[in-house]
């Protein structure tokens, strides 16, 4: 069933709020700037139909200067005094124009998609030469959440087609060619459901693994302490409202699990249950740093980076791009301070 474009929770009810400023009452009126659209895709319809129905990408080439633009954002070449450009199919491979960026705080309509990577790809013409322009695409990885280092300037990529194409630019996205098998690389079009997206647990640890399990035990102890504090804090409890997740945290020193349910956290060393989400961290001391900061407040000394940053930097790897658990956990330290559970 088709989903509403604006989620009901984003739509305000009629209402007027009174706010006191400098002793005087002022009004805030709930409202919307409402314009529904049947937005014409015009001359771009052919390009989007090609993505949707043929799973092929084309650009426009100027017969005079030979520039090839992808996407075909115009039909005439201004430097050649608006010479008519010609349709030309390109390959579904190319290279990154630059390292992609990773959005953590997104516009309203994209906030449930973070973290997401976006970058520009110079797609290849049939003769192997790069297009003159680079196309903005979402970039994804099969190795957990998107993070720096997976893509760089010049990284060869393959365009992948979504199975739920609607005739729009988000029908496609890029993956690094290095993450694909030779058979996947050779296939055109390559569909999203032909790729194994759950390879994160196979990813090898990088660097030297900490040998002792004492750090992990400390992480478990502090996580339990945090869970106790959450029980006493109305704000922290509210941070976990309407959220259920079973999470397994894996590190080279071992694993433990925790469950978020009923506005509470339960920590367990038994990791046999199938998790909704997997966190992988090479050095659990970093997690201990965050937990100490969260449970000891301002007196803990230098603050640990928020968990969000650990995910964005790739220190904490998730098996799927779902930040909600992380952002909710990140709110807890502040809530504990505001409820004076810690100072």
């Amino acid at each position: 069933m088709a989903q509403p474009i604006i989620r009901p929770r984003m739509q305000p009810e009629e209402g007027m709020r009174e706010v006191l400023v400098d002793g005087k009452t002022h009004l805030l009126r709930n409202d919307v700037m409402f314009t529904a659209m049947q937005h014409a895709q015009g001359e771009f319809s052919e390009f989007f139909l090609s993505l949707r129905d043929e799973q092929r990408i084309f650009g426009h080439r100027c017969p005079r200067c030979r520039h090839l633009i992808v996407p075909p954002f115009m039909k005439r070449c201004p430097p050649c005094n608006f010479a008519d450009m010609e349709k030309e199919y390109v390959k579904d491979v190319g290279v990154m124009a630059a390292s992609p960026v990773i959005t953590v705080f997104a516009p309203s309509r994209f906030k449930d998609q973070v973290p997401f990577g976006t970058g520009r790809v110079f797609l290849e013409a049939q003769d192997g030469t790069p297009a003159s322009t680079a196309m903005l695409v979402r970039v994804r990885t099969t190795l957990g959440t998107i993070r720096p280092g997976i893509y760089r300037k010049g990284t060869p990529v393959k365009i992948v087609f979504s199975p739920h194409r609607r005739g729009a630019v988000d029908d496609i996205f890029a993956v690094p060619q290095s993450e694909l098998t030779p058979a996947q690389l050779a296939k055109s079009p390559l569909a999203e459901n032909e790729i194994d997206w759950d390879r994160m647990p196979e990813a090898a640890w990088t660097g030297t693994a900490p040998e002792e399990g004492a750090v992990l035990k400390e992480a478990v102890r502090l996580f339990r302490k945090l869970a106790e504090m959450v029980r006493k804090s109305p704000r922290a409890t509210a941070d976990l409202r309407s959220w259920q997740r079973r999470v397994r945290l894996e590190s080279p020193a071992g694993a433990f699990g925790f469950v978020i349910d009923n506005c509470q956290i339960e920590v367990s060393e038994d990791t046999s249950a199938t998790p909704d989400l997997i966190f992988r961290i090479h050095d659990p001391a970093i997690l201990v740093g965050w937990l100490r900061g969260a449970s000891a407040g301002a007196r803990a000394g230098p603050q640990s980076p928020p968990l969000t940053d650990l995910v964005v930097e790739g220190t904490l790897i998730l098996n799927k791009p779902e930040m909600e658990t992380i952002t909710r956990l990140d709110r807890i330290p502040r809530s504990l301070r505001r409820d004076l559970i810690v100072d």
């Binding site: 989007f48 954002f73 516009p107 309509r109 994209f110 903005l136 695409v137 979402r138 630019v169 988000d170």
Partner: peptide
């Protein structure tokens, strides 16, 4: 058409 649907901002 090409950038906003990807969450460009």
């Amino acid at each position: 058409w090409f950038e906003r649907p990807l969450g460009a901002h």
